[in-house]
Computed example of a mutant assay.
Amino acid sequence: MTITRIGIVGAGTMGGGIATATAQAGVEVLLTDAKPGAAAAAVDLAGTFFARSVEKGRLSQDEADAARQRMHVVGSIDALADVDLVIEAVFEDMALKTDVLAKIASAVRPDTLIGTNTSCLRVSELAKAVTQPERFLGLHYFSPAQVNPIVEVVRGEQTADAAVALALEFTQRTGKQPLACKDQWGFCINRFFCPYTNEAARLVDEGLGTPGEIDLVAKEAVGAAAGPFQVMNIVKPRINLHAIRNLAPLGAFYTPARSMAVTGDAETSWTIDPAGDIDPAKADLIRDRLRAGTFLPVLQELDEGVAGPAEIDHGAREALKFGKPPCALMDRLGRAEVERLIVPLCSKYGYQLPKSLDRVGSLIST
């Protein structure tokens, strides 16, 4: 089967972005949302995106018009009965997603591929809501989905090889770079990105740096194009907090920092004042903590076989714009330095040193 027509349930930031990118790539999109007017608003935003692309010379006017004409608003999930793929893109809540997925599974053809855009929830748990779960998998697009090239293709415990192959072909054909990964909370990228942002918030809680100072040091520590607080303000602290909370089964290290919970629950943004001059000793401490908060979850996911070093680093470069992706950075720093950085976290939160620590120095070459 070739996917030529897809449905998207949920027309918010992610669903609308996925619809925009897919329509631009030549695939017809049917978009629905339970909130009145949300799907139409997403199509309007797509039209604005296409118009700006024309202004910037990225699309011709004919290409923009054709992409806009491939997007259709439909009134309900039942209208998706004859599509080849449905992507669920509703809010990151287990009860809501399972309810929506059950409705999708009952509305579509038996051979329709069903994907969830969950960023952290386990695909195998969500699959319990889907009849014929062998056709169900994770399709986690990164924000902004209109332009971000990365999609995590997540195989659940019952996902069939044919479903994975079809999803990989579809994402590649629609201009994305798929990362195949194992089903685990946080998958390949949020598994370490969320703890990285959480460690930044812990530094604030401990009075060891301001958001502005931490953002400045992060640009050197991991080669970030934007620091963790700036990124959280873009994706919204509430959404970042929710993703972190979904990592709770992984242990105490993944518990949200106090300020992370306060800021996210209040649905406010971080205040980021200019950093000014930073004392070198303070900068060293911030750098060490940010790197440790990234390296520990990366080594843990390597132990669990979630993804390989090359996939992790590719995702860090392309989805997160880390100029110093974690596996290559650990190789450069060496095993002894990485151990020095993560031992305090392992001791504090009760983890054994990851076995993959022994691979540091040759992660990218193995």
Rank of each mutant, 00 (worst) to 15 (best):
I87D: 07
I87K: 06
G156R: 00
L30V: 00
G138E: 06
A105T: 09
H314W: 15
I18G: 00
A46V: 00
P354Y: 03
V29I: 02
P110V: 09
M71S: 02
E339Y: 11
M94H: 08
A25L: 02
L137F: 11
L166Q: 15
A165V: 12
V231T: 07
G251I: 01
H72K: 13
G227R: 10
K176H: 07
E311L: 15
I364N: 04
V9E: 02
G175I: 00
Q300Y: 15
K219W: 12
S269T: 15
D44Y: 09
I239A: 11
G7M: 00
T171Q: 11
K103A: 13
M232K: 09
D288I: 05
G115I: 01
A163V: 02
V108N: 14
A38D: 03
P249N: 05
D84R: 01
T268G: 12
S76L: 04
Y349W: 10
I342A: 03
C327V: 01
T210L: 10
R291V: 09
F91V: 13
L30F: 12
E206G: 14
T2C: 01
L101Y: 05
E125W: 10
A221I: 03
T268Q: 13
V153M: 09
G207S: 03
G156S: 01
Q146F: 00
L357W: 11
A248T: 10
W270G: 05
Y196G: 06
L121N: 02
D111Y: 09
K182E: 10
K56P: 01
S259G: 13
P309M: 09
V29L: 00
I3L: 06
A310Y: 11
G223P: 01
T271N: 13
E206M: 14
V338N: 07
L168D: 08
V108Q: 14
D78Q: 12
K103R: 14
G57M: 04
D82P: 02
T22A: 01
E125L: 14
K348I: 14
R332C: 14
L30A: 08
A40L: 11
V298I: 11
T116C: 12
A275F: 08
L85M: 10
M260A: 09
V217P: 00
A336V: 12
A40I: 06
V298C: 11
R359W: 13
A248R: 12
R173C: 02
A64Y: 03
M14R: 02
